[in-house]
């Protein structure tokens, strides 16, 4: 592999490689790889999240979008990205809470974390409804 090649790697490999400071081939002490921002966190997605967070199809970007964002933020300090992700998540969480108990296409836009959240909300809503339905008249 030549120097300057751009390849897709799992983020945990990028994590390890970006922390090794020694390049065994050239012997220089700089970082072995430079990590670019993941595709899912590219500026167009972030702009969409800024304008209309609940409408963005996060599952299409990455099924583990928020997990990826958290991993990336752990590796690199990026205050702007952190703010965008945190506000977007708050907006999306309140949107999911609105959708709890409903069914529809919106579920396909959720990433894994949001799906889990949606399922939890639905489960407790169901438990509540079953309880309230114990009166019969």
């Amino acid at each position: 592999m030549n120097e300057g090649t751009i390849i897709d790697l799992p983020i945990w490999i990028a994590d390890v490689l970006s922390q090794s400071e020694y390049d065994p081939y050239s012997g220089n002490q700089e970082c072995f790889v430079t990590v670019k921002i993941p595709h899912a966190l590219k500026p167009s997605v972030l702009n969409a999240l800024k304008t209309d967070a609940p409408g963005v199809d996060l599952r299409y970007q990455s099924p583990l979008f928020f997990a990826l964002a958290i991993y990336y933020l752990e590796l690199f300090e990026d205050e702007e990205l952190e703010t965008i992700i945190a506000t977007a998540m708050a907006e999306r969480i309140s949107d999911i809470y609105d959708n709890v108990g409903r069914r529809g296409e919106f579920v396909h836009k959720y990433d894994e974390f949001e799906k889990m959240l949606y399922k939890k909300g639905c489960a407790s809503r169901r438990a509540y409804k079953e309880y309230m339905a114990t009166i019969k008249y």
């Binding site: 991993y71 933020l73 752990e74 205050e79 952190e82 998540m89 708050a90």
Partner: peptide
């Protein structure tokens, strides 16, 4: 009590994830 109980799993899980983001950002 019942109203809080209904939203508790949802809110707790959601807020935990938001805390994770903030923690990841602050080293």
């Amino acid at each position: 009590a019942l109203e809080i109980n209904e939203m508790r799993p949802f809110v707790v899980e959601g807020m935990e994830e938001m805390i994770k983001i903030r923690k990841a950002g602050k080293k």
